[in-house]
């Protein structure tokens, strides 16, 4: 099954979210790290909710995580995607959660808690986005 339909819509990028999507477009998975207290956060936001700092650094993430939850989407179907879409919540090893989807796995083999890792697929206008597949050597 060709999991990576190239027609999926490109993300909407705002000034607040560009830190994530601009890195993803280049095949890098990142999160904001507060320059004041060091906490990672996602989704991105302009202020640290813990210490009110406006200063941020960009943290490179490993892309390794575990599947926190999933959902196998059958209906409605949009022509930009191949069905069923396997939606995923991934808890990354750095301690933040991402919403994405799974590729390269049969829906019957999906298990909560399975190790997964990120790879990147193109969207309609070109930018890459991070999706996940099972980690082979688990």
């Amino acid at each position: 099954m060709a999991a990576d339909a190239p027609t999926r819509p490109s993300p909407t990028v705002t000034d607040d979210s560009a830190v994530f999507w601009d890195a993803a477009a280049e095949g890098r998975l990142v999160a904001q790290r507060c320059a004041g207290c060091g906490r990672l956060r996602h989704p991105p936001r302009p202020m640290c909710p813990a210490c009110s700092s406006l200063e941020v650094e960009i943290a490179e993430l490993s892309g390794q995580g575990t599947l926190y939850s999933y959902a196998i989407l059958h209906h409605p179907q949009h022509p930009a995607f191949e069905y069923p879409v396997i939606a995923a919540l991934v808890d990354l090893e750095e301690g933040i959660r991402l919403l994405s989807c799974l590729t390269d796995v049969s829906k019957d083999d999906v298990r909560i808690g399975m190790p997964v890792h990120a790879h990147f697929v193109p969207t309609a206008d070109g930018p890459l986005i991070p999706v996940f597949r099972p980690t082979e050597d688990s």
Partner: peptide, 13 residues
């Protein structure tokens, strides 16, 4: 913003 690029398009999903 955070769901739609991944095909997660509806409240049910």
């Amino acid at each position: 913003q955070w769901c739609m690029p991944f095909g997660v398009l509806t409240p049910a999903s």
